[in-house]
Amino acid sequence: MRAFTYERAETPQQAAMAAASTDHARFIAGGTNLLDLMKIEVETPAHLVDVNGLGLDTIENTDDGGLRVGALVRNTDLAADPRVRRDYGVLSRALVAGASGQLRNKATTGGNLLQRTRCPYFYDTNMPCNKRRPGTGCAALEGFSRQLAIIGGSEHCIATHPSDMAVAMRLLDAEVETVLPNGNTRAIPIADFHRLPGDTPQIDSALIPGEFITAVTLPRPLGGKHFYHKVRDRASYAFALVSVAAVIQPDGGGRVALGGVAPKPWRREDADAALPRGAKAVMARLLDGAEPTHENRFKVNLAERTLAAVLAEAKE
């Protein structure tokens, strides 16, 4: 691990200012992903801004019937909150489908959104990777791509976003609240928060340098039946090959989002509209334009069958 200096932020804006005014600075909250990457020197910050003392660890009711989740609420606490279990079951299910009990006790709501990809070439510093070192190429395109994206990638990067929580947040149309180094705040719709790689795969999100996530807000509950079906190589503690987040209403309508298939949580509102006509109709739209590799072509079928299983369960 490279040496770094360390400070504890006192306020969200001070954290943002500290990160923006110091070269190669990173926020650290749970640290479960950042420290892992620092040990292998994929991440080499010269300065860490510890945000764990900022509070931001409560879940509050909003005036319009939703919830405002502080950025430092731990994954365990968000999954266990009685309001989340009752009204946002898909979010609770997605959270407990990810990582291990130990990691969920540390990992935060804001940090989970900012996880880096688990593409093996991003982790292997001996290999080309445009996300890790822009301009070096993408070793995954001709390499081991079983875990990687089938849609939304580019000729520069086919990494997937690893978060389960973010898939549920996308399904629920959450908003990410931030503070900027100048003290201004903004709310970024989750649909616009994660970005597609294009020719700048090193940039994962819409955040500008120093911008700090303070909360994630959930709109009022959708009702319906909530599902998060995750298909992976082990029964527990593994990243998704395909995951399906869905809320299905009594009339057969609802929403669906996919994890494990794209550089960001994957949802298209026009695909939601096809839900009453079944999984095949949904996937015809949701995965329209998919460009799988020979190693991950199976994900196209797997996604459709996983959604079919969800829809069958919804009718029970």
């Binding site: 640290g31 420290l35 040990k39």
Partner: peptide
């Protein structure tokens, strides 16, 4: 593993289990 994958380093911090390998000592004031 020293990367949060094996759990051999599990300890309790304020009563909750965490991977001690994925936490900085300085963060535990």
């Amino acid at each position: 593993c020293d990367h949060g994958q094996c759990g051999a380093c599990t300890v309790m911090v304020n009563g909750r289990r965490v991977n001690a390998c994925l936490s900085l000592a300085v963060m535990h004031e």
